[in-house]
Every structure is written in C-alpha cells, then in structure tokens.
Design a binder for these strands. Structure first.
Lengths: 217, 217, 217, 217
DNA sequence: GATGAATGAGTGTTCATTCAT
DNA sequence: AATGAATGAACACTCATTCAT
C-alpha cells in the first residue's frame, strides 16, 4: 500500500519540479522519469500522456478553488441584491467595514492559493501548451458573469439590456484585474501572511477604480 | 541591394506570421523558410538564430515604444513636481480635465501600439521562450520608477526613504496594471479608435484606484 | 470452473474483436485486456504470448477445416481413380450432374467456413505477423498433393514421374485458385446461402479452366 | 551532382531491402538509416515520412504498369467490339492464335513486372500498412470495368442493364483472378522467361474458365 | 487466478543548427 | 547570397512482456 504509491508520488513530485522549472512545453518526460528513477513506461502506467500528468498535479486544487471563487462572487451578488433593496448604501460598502467584509472572502481564496502555492504557481504561470493554458481566462469569465449583474445594479439599470458594449468592456477588464490580483500576490509574496497584507490595498485599489468607473459615465 | 532585401523581408514577413500563429516556441524555422520559398541556410545568413529572428521583428518598434513610455511617465513626474510646489491640487488631477491630459499621453502610446499592432501583439503575447518573454516585466519596472516618485509626493512624504515595503508592493502592482491596460486594449480592440474609447474608462479606473490607495492608508 | 472460464472467454471475445478490427500486428494486447476489463497479467495466465492468443482463437476451427479439406480432395481422388479404371469419362464430370457432385463437397466446406465466419475471416485475412500468416499456402499445399494425382490421370500419364515442372506450376496455381475461391466467397458474401450461389459459378469457372489446361497441352 | 544523390540512392536501396525483408509495418526507419550510414534526419530531408519513402520506391513503376494494364484491357474491349460486329467468332478467340494475341499483351505486362521484379514484389506482397496496401484491389477494379463490358457482349446482352448481381460477382472474381495470375507468376518465377512459359497455361486456364461461365448459365 | 507495477527497447518524427559549395 | 545536405539530440509515446504479491 505504501510501496505502490511511492513511484507515482515520486513521479508527481519530479513532474512538479520539471514543469515549474521549464514550463509545460519545455518539460521533458524523459527527464522527469530519470529524476524519479523510473523508465518512461512506468510513467505511462500512471498517466495517459503529458497533459494527463499535468492535470493530475493541478486538477484537484483547481476544482476546490473554483468552488471558492463561485462562493466569493455569490457574496458580491448578495451585496448588489441588498443595494437593490435599498437596505445598505454604496458608501457603506466603500467604508472600512465594507472592505473588511469583502476582503474576508478574498482572504479565504488567497489562503487556499498559498496552501497550494507551488501548484497554483504552476497552473497560473507555467501551463502554456497544456489543456489548462487558458485557465485564467476561464476564471475571468466566471468573475465576469457576476460582475455584470453587480454593475447593472450599481448603475441603476432596470435591466441588463441597458449594458452597452462599452460597459461590457470595462466589466471584462475589472474581472480580469480581479483574477490578476490573486495571481500577482501569489507570484510576488512568499507567504499567505505577506499576501494578506497586500491584498487589502489591492482590493481598495480595485474598489476605488470600480466606483470611479461607475460615476464617470 | 533590392534583391538582398527582398529575401530578408520575405523571411521577416513569414516569421511574423508563424510566430503570431504558433507562438515563439512552437514556431518552426523550417516552416518559415518553406513559406518564404527559401532554404534554412538563407535564414541563417541574415539571422544568428531563432531568437535573433524574433528580435529583428520587434526590437525597433520596441525601442521606439520605450522612448515613448519614458516620456509618458516623465509627464506624470511633472505633475508630481507641480504638486510638490503646491501649484495645483490633487482634485484637479482627478477632474475631467486632468484625466483628459493624462489620457492624451496614454493615447499617444496606444496610437503607436496600434500602428504596429501585429508586432506588439507578437511581442506581448507570443514571446514565451524568446529572450523577450519577460518584456512586460521590463516595462513595468520602467513605470515603477516614476510611479514611486509620484506616490511619495502624493502621500506627502518628505523623502523616498519613507516608502515602506508595503508601499512598494502596491506601486509595483499599479505599474503592472498600467502596462496591462495597454496590453488588454491592444489584444481586445481591433482599431486604435475602438481602443481609445476604452482607454478613457480604464484610465479612470486606474486613477480611481490610485486615489483609493493613497487615502486608505 | 465457471468463473475461470468467464475471464478466458471474455479475453478471447475481445481478442477476436481487436484482431479483426486491426489485424494481428496492429492489435494491442493492452487494448484487448482493457476491453475485457482485465489486466495484462491475466491474459498471460491463459496465453503464452500474443501469438498463442491468436492461435487459441483459430486453431480448433482450423483443424476441423483441414480434416474437411482432406476429405474433399479424397473425393476428387476417387473420381480420378474411377477415371483411371475407365468407368466414367471426363465429359461426365463436366456435365451438370458431375458438377453438382463436386459442389456438394465444396458446399460442405463452405458451410463450415460460414459457420465460423468471423474466425476464418480473421485467419485468412488478418493473420499477417502471426504464425498463421501463411496458412493459405499450407492449405494450397494440401490441395496440391491431391490435384497432382488427378492431373496425372487426366493427362493419361502412366506414372507421376511424367509430370514436368511446367505441369507442377499449373497444378500449384489451380490449387491456389481453389483455396482462393473459398476465401473470396467468405470475404465477399454475407451468408452461406449467398455464397452457395456464387460457388456454383466459380467451380464451373475452375473446372472449365482445368479442362482447358488439360487439353491445350 | 553525383554526391548529392548518393545518399538518397543509398537510402532507397536500404529501404527496399528493409521493406522487402520485414514488410512495411515491421520495417524500421532507424535500421534503414543505420544501414545507409546516415542519421534519421537525413532521411527526413529526402522523404516526408515512412509512407513517402515507400511511395518513392514504387510510385513510378506502378504508374507505368497502370498505363499498361489499361492498354491490356482496351485490347480485350476491342475483341468484344469485333465480336459484336460479328466479324470474328468466339471459337476463334479460344483458338491457339487468339490466345497468342491475348498473351502478347499479357506478356508485355509481365515483362515489365519482371523488369522491376523487386519493386513489384514489394508493392504486391509487402505493402500492408502503407497507403498502397490495397493496390491489388485497385487493379482488380480497373480490370472489372473492362470485363463487365466484355461479359455483356459475350452473353449477348443488349444492354449492361441485364447484368445481374450474380453476373457481377463472377466478373469480379475473374478480374481478381486475372490480377492474381500476374502476382502469382511474379512471386513464383525467377525470371521473365520462366514466367512467360507459365503465363500461357494460366491464360488458357482463365479463358477456359471464362467460357465455362458464359455457357453454364 | 489475477493484480498492479514496471521494464526496456522500440516507434516515427521534429528540431534548430551547421557547413561545404 | 543562398543552396542542399546532413547532423545529432531530442521528442512524446507504445509495445509485448514479466513478476512479486
């Protein structure tokens, strides 16, 4: 029971190393096997192909992350729902307390990212060539859906029909930026603690920008 | 003199196509030569290696762009200089006119990016594997220098010595975001005209975020 | 006793499928096992190697067929024996009734081939690379022995010694053609009934050819 | 001019050897290169892939052969045309002289087959797995077209519409057999001279069979 | 009876690069 | 200025087979 998994684990470990060092495309399966002290055939016993090996490294943490992100954006949708009902007002969200609430969710996400720092570094910066090479875009698309609703509410639109192509563009950008914030912290901070500090400022930046966009038009 | 350049130009044209289609790493020199109707030997007469071919495509437009960016940020430095002297105040920068001024410079950059859209698309999104794979980071670093000065002024710091690691981080992020705005527009808009429209909102977003960051702390 | 055989049968069934689809060489044992829901180790418990697996599919029906063919050609030898004795004459063999008699035996063979159509399709058209790749030649050799005797008689030779190299060649060809007739029907007709119809014409063709050869020389 | 082609010729020579020894599928490009004293890269300079290498060996002789076969069958169509006109009668074709005429054409084909014996051995018996693996079927189809017309005439059909499925079957068989005669001689005789002798008998066999089929129904 | 793991040699193919001519 | 030829190392991947458990 221990021995069986040893090889697979060694392979995964060496794959993580190789992919992280060279990126998906330049990574050599031969090299991974050599480092794991196994023949290439052994690798193909455990994994269908190069892409499957990569997926085995990232798919589970990614699935969990996606669940979290969905949760995150549902929080925000709730806020916009409340706004619609007139129960809280915009200034309250922008206040220190409002940001604290928002950050609480983002912090959860960030915590998880750092819990699997090496995996997410790999996924978000070394996946080019794999089936996950556009994973960030996928996340942006998730964010976009929710921000679109939120935007309509804050603009005081009666229906989403009022959203113009120009609106859509800036919503897409902000969604992109939100995801980029996470990536940026992950790749620039060594620990969650360090990242947490920066997150506060970055979220403030994003929300500041958000309101500027809402008001300017 | 004409004939020589013909081959080289054909090679550059086909290289642009191939690199743009497949990205630097997946691009095949064989294929470039085949499309140019030349043998690989000919390519190696004009270019040292694959990377040199790539560089030949982007280096000139890039150099020009870098000159422009320096200019852009010098503009902003000027603003911060004026602020220091107390001759204009922050609210003025955030006013419609202030934004207009700022946009004027950014528009110049954007105009140039679109003038060489295919080249900059290549450089900014297809360079992975080449010596320019981190070119965006380089631009960010350029932006960072100037934003650092600006930030100190707006914070009312006497000297740059007061800038903390946390300050540096957010400055780096904003610099990164500034560059990303250009890339985003370049890769999402078909023409300069279209991009120009979006730029206004995105700059508003960035400046809104900037002030949020200045004030929150 | 039931369970054991279940696996083996499943394996044989999936092997038949795989070999029939891809031919012996391109067939993958991995794939056979996967389809059978078993590991490769299991396969090697029942079968020595790839060739043994193939042989296990075809050996029994083949042995039975060979017995039949021997019988078939003994029938013909009987005819030649009778001829020798002058009790019937050649024109009688070529007559409708003579052909009917001959067809009766060939029909038996054909019936058996169709009874195991998938197996004999496999053996006769998909065996390249296996130890049976020349099985048709082997059958031809069987036919050849008997046709040689028949030929001598019809030619009015006193002894087989009179058979020349040229005679041998045409005997070999006719033997080859006889086997080919069976293969052709098997691979071109869907049912025994359909094949039976065609057999009549093909045997007429062969016998017509046979007499032409006898007389021309 | 000599040196350039040396490698390619060596490669072709070794490829012919390897393909002939092991058949297309089992042939190893590595081995071919090793025997030619070249690296695999060199092979890929001259040939697109394994199949292209095989095609380079056989395509030209094959094209020439196909021209000849067309000619052959056109001869036969001429005969059937004359028959239609009533200018010659069937017995004449079956006579020694008629066969001599027919054989003359077949001899030409056979002569060419032996002129490139090794190539056609390769093409007709070792092509499995290559794009020529069904080349014999292709030739049969060519023969079939012409035999169909001939058959209708000899049967005294007014139009080809009268040809039944059963007729078609036997025509297909005879076409197949015609091609097989060539293959058989090629693979069983060492020289054209030897083959020529056998051809006469085999053509007699075929024509004897042909008339038997025509009359029996 | 059968598994799960692993071997090791092999496959065809592609690559950037070099160099004599 | 450019060709045609060739290198040599690398690539991902597949295979039949083995064997301790």
């Amino acid at each position: 029971m221990e021995k069986e998994k040893e090889t697979k684990q060694k392979l995964l470990k060496c794959a993580l190393q190789e992919f992280s060092d060279k990126g998906y495309m330049k990574a050599s399966l031969r090299n991974i096997c050599k480092n794991a002290g196994v023949t290439t055939g052994a690798l193909y016993f455990f994994f269908k192909d190069k892409d499957d090996l990569f997926r085995s490294l990232v798919s589970e943490p990614l699935a969990e992350l996606e669940r979290m992100i969905e949760g995150h954006f549902n929080e925000e949708v709730n806020i916009s729902y409340l706004l619609k009902k007139g129960e809280i007002d915009i200034s309250e969200i922008a206040s220190e307390e409002g940001l604290e609430d928002d950050n609480a969710v983002a912090r959860e996400v960030l915590k998880y990212l750092f819990k699997n720092k090496d995996i997410f570094d790999l996924l978000l910066t070394k996946a080019q060539g794999s089936s996950y090479e556009n994973i960030a875009d996928h996340m942006v698309a998730m964010a976009e859906k929710h921000y679109t609703g939120m935007y309509a509410v804050m603009k005081g639109y009666d229906s989403k029909r009022q959203i113009t192509a120009e609106d859509k563009f800036i919503i897409h950008w902000i969604s992109h930026d939100q995801i980029d914030i996470f990536i940026h912290i992950l790749t620039h901070c060594k620990s969650f603690k360090e990242g947490e500090k920066q997150l506060k400022n970055m979220m403030a930046y994003m929300i500041g920008g958000w309101f500027a966009v809402i008001n300017i038009k």
